[in-house]
Nucleic acid binder design. Sequence first.
DNA 1: ACCAGCGATGTTTGCGTAAACATCAGGTGG
DNA 2: CCACCTGATGTTTACGCAAACATCGCTGGT
Lengths: 371, 371
Amino acid sequence: METVEEAAADPGDPPGAPGPVARGTGAARPPAPRRARATASMADVARLAGVSAQTVSRVSNGYPGVTEETRRQVRAAMRELGYRPNSAARALKRGEFRTIGVITFTLATTGNVRTLEAIATSAAREGYAVTLLPLAVPTQDEVRGAFSRLEELAVDAVIVIMEVHLLDAATVHLPPHVQVVVVDSDAGDRYTVVDTDQHGGTREAVRHLLDLGHRTVWHLAGPEDSFAAMRRADAWRAALTEAGRELPPIVRGDWSAESGYRAGRELAVREECTAVFAANDQMALGLLRVLHEHGRRVPEDVSVIGFDDIPEASSFLPPLTTLHQDFAEVGRLCVQAVLRKMRQEGPERGTTLVPTRLVLRSSTAPPPGPR
Amino acid sequence: METVEEAAADPGDPPGAPGPVARGTGAARPPAPRRARATASMADVARLAGVSAQTVSRVSNGYPGVTEETRRQVRAAMRELGYRPNSAARALKRGEFRTIGVITFTLATTGNVRTLEAIATSAAREGYAVTLLPLAVPTQDEVRGAFSRLEELAVDAVIVIMEVHLLDAATVHLPPHVQVVVVDSDAGDRYTVVDTDQHGGTREAVRHLLDLGHRTVWHLAGPEDSFAAMRRADAWRAALTEAGRELPPIVRGDWSAESGYRAGRELAVREECTAVFAANDQMALGLLRVLHEHGRRVPEDVSVIGFDDIPEASSFLPPLTTLHQDFAEVGRLCVQAVLRKMRQEGPERGTTLVPTRLVLRSSTAPPPGPR
DNA sequence: ACCAGCGATGTTTGCGTAAACATCAGGTGG
DNA sequence: CCACCTGATGTTTACGCAAACATCGCTGGT
């Protein structure tokens, strides 16, 4: 937006508008891409089929009240002309776009991507398209901007894949008629939320390690501003407390493998650390590397468990025991929830949890015997 | 589509149409999600500002011929009413949607995702939205289906991230007015193609290993039906031949780390294999694991080089030397190309290559001395 | 035999926008 | 002083579709 020299980019100045560029007396107007008028309209089909446009519309929408015979003729005419309903006109008339907007901060994490993919697939099955709105930087301003773009961008609903603290209701202008569903959030009281059962999964991870005989479990946590990271850390704490084990100091990364490597140094040098629960698989990968570099064998000396079950996890050294997240299910439920909300069938808010599954591989084992 | 009992899903039967469900005499009509008529229209703004709708339109589009004074008033009215241009009406009137469709087979590979992200970001900057069309299975039928959905799905252009052999021009119905740009393809003679410089990158990889003193370089290739894999294999062959080295038998995976592990067994048992060029980082990861399991140290006994430079590559054991692909640039160029085509400014076809960059880490070294 | 009733089809209308054209006021040159 | 131009603004119209309403012809009950 740095090139705009005039007033501000106001409501009326859509991001894509020609804007105040290429102006001046007699200036050629901006070379707006122009589609050739090449498609047949309903009227054309109607003419060819010898019926009214309304009948074509009925056939097009599968409405009743048309003879099988007429229907056939109209279909033939459609085929002949290569007719495709004009979605703009349809949207204008119906007041809905059959499109769901997805706002996501980054596509760098497996979870977001897999969820997005599932959303797109489920949406397609329901006859909805998905419009993607990636955010450059996760600031409230960006989020707000994305929402306003979305609004004029022809969507009926929005799914937000994002830490919700960015979604401060006070500042984000949520268009009243656009339904919102949030992934990965604790705001079940304010929004409809679909999320993985972070708590249950973590609990299972901790229990698994404890059951193997470890005295306690260390935690390589995700970034502090992440809700998912927070939940996993909380659940880890709760599980240990409940089992009456001591609570080791928390170690933090930023989800990346690199950060797991850096943060893991601290764990690698501690003899008493025999079991680590990493908040995601990537950080576990980095951890595996530091441990290796410090000569600590996994799982003989140290057990490591991850979270996510990314495809590569089975190829780590050693193959990683981790908690499988069902992102496909999360995406599916998001779409269902948002459609239900649009139809005003569902509850206004509340959280839906998708369970995880413990995948046992080779990175966990009983602790080394007392030496 | 299994619930449709009537004829086939014809052109006139959009995937999302209410269809022949919920019918019958006097049956309540399907509970179509309905948006409340809540937004202000141009007419409302015009009334409040005391001008004509046309003037509002001019302001909204930043067109000239409006006094600064009037413009201010209109802007004020827009703000007061929370006016947002109705994109459906706008699209109907203008005949363009300002939306780019992206067809992609899978979001499971880093490359596709990163490219998609870059496309979405670049498109947003140009005032275009991105509609995502994932394919369940990569068959011609699916591709064809995706295209026809896309067409009625309100897009002005399409970017295809896919092996092009699925895009057989004979069967895919490409709407004449929709421009197409393809990523990862050799069809520069038929489409506009943007791709990473597979050849140059591979060449650099092979040269790097040869320069280190290896007698030859083995290749862990991608699946046969992948164009990128084919190109990399070809370039590997060419580079070796050119250097007058012997050509070891090719070993093949399917891009996944797991497949790299399986295929890598063959390499791990060959004493004479001291350098391997893996067609992507994931397979390199699997390869690292088999090598480790067979007691062959990397890089002391065997050098491994990957392709892609995924974020995790720096955390592999050892950190992976690889070829960095600039997916962001690929995405950006795709958008530029497709916009240029829409404006009929660019060439109809041809290939644009994005160079790679060799990232030196710890998985390559001179071969072990003769024993 | 007549008409109510119903299913099939046609006609009218308006969704919100923007291009094309119309109007109008004020200024300029002859 | 008027014909003419110019720039600001208003009016008309059409984009393609589908809801609402209108019409038409046939069937069946009395």
